[in-house]
Design a protein around this nucleic acid. Structure first.
Length: 205
DNA sequence: CGGCTGATTGCCT
DNA sequence: GGCAATCAGCCGA
């Protein structure tokens, strides 16, 4: 309501790199307890399931990554670093276990709610980074497995406005150790809500 | 901006 | 037991 139609199932039933590129400019909407926040996606990363050493699905199905092995168009939410949630869109045919990490976006509705959840500004940073994005949208474990193609789902992907080819930039994935040479991060060139690149850092103790 | 560190918990080897 | 698809705070250039 107010955000146009939701994406079709077949949108996600394609190669993960195609889906990743086409997710830019789309709207992720989360509606809970009457509060609505919408984010226009400006940065994503592709993870190619069983063939990708950086993917959570690389070593086969587990309790955590089970959703990745299911049909496309569902949200895969995981908890990391003891405090953060990140959200992916599962894509490809069932079993492919490929997914697109939603890294950043522009809050286009519900900025007041997003700001209250995040507890700090500025507005351009509300969803600038994968954990900030889930925080702003109020996404947590309850959203794992949500069907984002269902108009009645609290978490949905709306068609929005796709971006032109000449503004799509690509580079290595952020904070990833394995396969750091693959340019599978994609973002909208020049958009201030795109996160800053960080190399993977090995931690001591 | 680049670089480093602490925080904090679930998951997998 | 090791470490993670991160973030915030701080420092230096």
């Amino acid at each position: 309501m107010g955000f146009g139609r939701v994406a079709a199932r077949r949108f996600f039933d394609r190669p993960v790199l195609d889906v990743a590129r086409d997710l830019l400019g789309r709207l992720l909407v989360h509606e809970v307890d009457g509060a609505v926040v919408a984010v226009r996606l400006t940065e994503v990363e592709a993870y190619a399931g069983g063939h990708d050493p950086a993917s959570h699905a690389f070593r086969g199905p587990t309790a955590r990554n089970a959703v990745m092995f299911g049909p496309g168009g569902h949200a895969y939410v995981y908890f990391t670093y003891g405090m953060h949630y990140c959200v992916n869109m599962v894509c490809g045919p069932p079993g492919a276990a490929s997914a697109v990490l939603l890294r950043a976006g522009e809050v286009v509705a519900g900025a007041d709610v997003a700001l209250a959840r995040r507890g700090r500004g500025p507005e351009r940073d509300l969803a600038r980074g994968p954990a900030r994005l889930t925080k702003a949208l109020g996404i947590d474990r309850d959203c794992n497995g949500a069907d984002v193609t269902a108009a009645a789902s609290p978490l949905r992907l709306h068609v929005g406005t796709p971006v032109a080819d000449d503004v799509v930039r690509r580079g290595p994935r952020v904070g990833v150790n394995a396969a750091h040479d693959l340019p599978w991060r994609m973002w909208v060139d020049g958009d201030p809500t795109v996160s800053v690149y960080r190399r993977h850092v090995k931690r001591t103790r």
